[in-house]
Nucleic acid binder design. Sequence first.
DNA 1: TTAATTTCGGATAAATTTGTCCGAAATAAA
DNA 2: TTTATTTCGGACAAATTTATCCGAAATTAA
Lengths: 144, 144
Amino acid sequence: MFSKTCTYGIKATLFIAQKAQLDERVSLKEIATAIDSPVAFTAKILQVLAKEHIINSIKGPKGGFEIAKAQLPNITIKQVVKAIDGDSLFNGCALGLQECNEKAPCPMHDNFVSIRDQLNETLASSNLLQVAADLNQGRTVLKR
Amino acid sequence: MFSKTCTYGIKATLFIAQKAQLDERVSLKEIATAIDSPVAFTAKILQVLAKEHIINSIKGPKGGFEIAKAQLPNITIKQVVKAIDGDSLFNGCALGLQECNEKAPCPMHDNFVSIRDQLNETLASSNLLQVAADLNQGRTVLKR
DNA sequence: TTAATTTCGGATAAATTTGTCCGAAATAAA
DNA sequence: TTTATTTCGGACAAATTTATCCGAAATTAA
Ligand code: FES
Ligand code: FES
């Protein structure tokens, strides 16, 4: 469904969001530990997310990554997925045809569009504030 | 969503099903041409599908691949996907945790399960007879 | 029996994704 | 100003996925 890179990106974003709700800034190492991911590889992904303005990066001592608390309700999982995996999941053809085309649909088209629509809706309506709250209440986890 | 290998596998199966409805057997080359895939790589995938008894392979002159007409309504897209990509799409965690676990859910779990359920239902109820009919009527296509 | 055709199966190679390493740049604090 | 800390960015490496090649095996037909 998502690439491994993308799952790291989502988990990292959610962890940063969780701490952002508590007005805390987190370092690369803390993130990698919290989400159980390879440190250097995680750094690359965070760079992408920073460039897309999904997270904020601060260099130097006491630096790290953060999200403005006020932004939490405005950022969605869909934005994160799009930034890393692109948007083919949201509008591409299930069978990999160059584009999804209503006029010359692939055999899976009719069944697939409703799934794709639900995916769009779900990921576009899942904002970081909600998710961060769940994490801080211990109702959900980022690793086991 | 699906691996490239899997989309080839699905398309190949659907093409064989389309011809099976007309009581025709097709060769590797015909399949690769019909679905626009690399010949040798397609051969590998067909081998897997044959081992899983989703399709039937016949060696020698006039050989090729086929599906028993009577089997068409009993074979689903889900079987094909499971044979090639495994079943992590159908029961795995959206964020790649070792397993999807209700008791210690990842932050996407609640939203994700309904999508996953719909995916299961859709792919498990899409049988080859229906799809083959659409293809033979020119209502859907396997390449452009 | 021989020849032609077609899939099978193993080795290999290319491409992409995933992951590492390390010096540079920025910044905070001593 | 100097030092320590932290992210940045580029080169490189490993692992996985995608793809090719070719001889072997099976089967049909001459
Ligand atoms: S054409 Fe394949 S999903 Fe729309
Ligand atoms: S625990 Fe992640 S989807 Fe269920």
